[in-house]
């Protein structure tokens, strides 16, 4: 039985790691802030979910499992809200730089 669980964990966690890698690649390669935010929030959240799922069987007690899920939930809320605030800030900053560039002939 534990062999099966270990296999599931291995599978899910490696998938999660794959998503994280994709997110990081997006962060480095994508041109402007908005796309980067998009890559990060999407890829990393899924990656985190997969890792948490993968680790659930390894969790010592039910409480530990609940805590891990709580961590995931917190990450979701935070990244959701923060990405929107970041997006607004990024667009604002882009506008400021644009107007500044026009003033300078």
């Amino acid at each position: 039985m534990s062999l099966l669980l270990d296999a599931v964990t291995l599978l899910l966690v490696s998938a999660g790691v794959l998503f994280f890698a994709a997110g990081t690649l997006g962060l480095l390669r994508l041109p402007d802030p908005l796309t980067r935010i998009h890559a990060l929030t999407k890829a990393d959240n899924v990656g985190l979910a997969l890792i948490v799922l993968g680790l659930l069987p390894q969790a010592g007690s039910v409480m530990a499992g609940v805590k891990m899920i709580a961590v995931w939930a917190l990450a979701q809320i935070a990244s959701g809200a923060v990405s929107q605030v970041l997006a607004e800030a990024a667009t604002l900053e882009a506008q400021i730089e644009a107007t500044a560039r026009e003033k300078r002939p």
Binding site: L74, I77, G80, V82, Q84, V85, E88, A89
Partner: peptide, 15 residues
């Protein structure tokens, strides 16, 4: 203050 942070605050602060 940007709206999303208000949402985040309302959710996170009590926790």
């Amino acid at each position: 203050a940007p709206a999303p942070s208000a949402f985040l605050a309302r959710v996170l602060v009590p926790i």
